[in-house]
């Protein structure tokens, strides 16, 4: 099994830390992992993205130009990465701020309104964990118990009291994600 993921959005949305928690979850499941961030000028107040690879075998290139799954959290990232999902792959997006919804019909598309939901339940900081939970519902590449271990590993100890809240958000994300059928794509 090899899962190649791009997570892309604005700086400050928790894109890099979401990737880090996912990578750590892979470590806890004794998989090979790599985490390659964008660290260029774009991360200084613009778009941020991270490539995460989870694999049962040795990972070759940590830098990729096509992906099994794209998790897209803003319009710029949609413009950049929708076309880079492999045919048959998966695109997950948060609709907040999205003007041009995805159009491809050769991939599975899921929508998660995590920004709205996090605001509704007054817990904006758990937004990225909701998205991660949604992703893991669609692609259960790591077991939830290993995600929780990964969360613990990647959070500094002073933040460990937040783990329960993050766990709730992970589960909630799995509940609110929904697949967009290709017929709906035409309508939105």
């Amino acid at each position: 099994m090899q899962e190649e993921i791009i997570i892309a959005g604005f700086g400050g949305q928790g894109v890099l830390s979401m990737g880090k928690i996912l990578a750590y979850s892979g470590v806890m499941q004794e998989m090979e992992v790599s985490w390659m961030p964008s660290y260029g000028p774009e991360m200084r107040g613009g778009t941020a993205n991270v490539t995460v690879i989870l694999s049962d075998t040795r990972i070759g290139s940590p830098v990729l130009h096509e992906f099994d799954t794209a998790i897209i959290l803003n319009q710029q990232s949609m413009d950049k990465f929708e076309s880079l999902v492999k045919p048959g792959g998966t695109l997950i997006y948060d609709s907040n701020g999205i003007v041009h919804h995805p159009k491809r019909t050769d991939i599975s598309i899921f929508r998660i309104d995590a920004t709205d939901e996090a605001a509704r339940i007054n817990s904006p900081k758990t937004f990225n964990m909701m998205v991660l939970g949604g992703y893991l519902k669609v692609k259960p590449v790591v077991l939830m118990k290993n995600v929780l271990k990964g969360l613990k590993k990647s959070l500094p100890e002073r933040h460990h009291h937040l783990i329960a809240m993050n766990e709730k958000a992970l589960i909630h994300g799995g509940e609110i994600i929904r697949e967009i059928s290709h017929n709906d794509l035409v309508r939105v």
Partner: peptide, 10 residues
Amino acid sequence: DGVIGQMMEK
């Protein structure tokens, strides 16, 4: 290089 310096692995 910047790839190996910035990437995370086990």
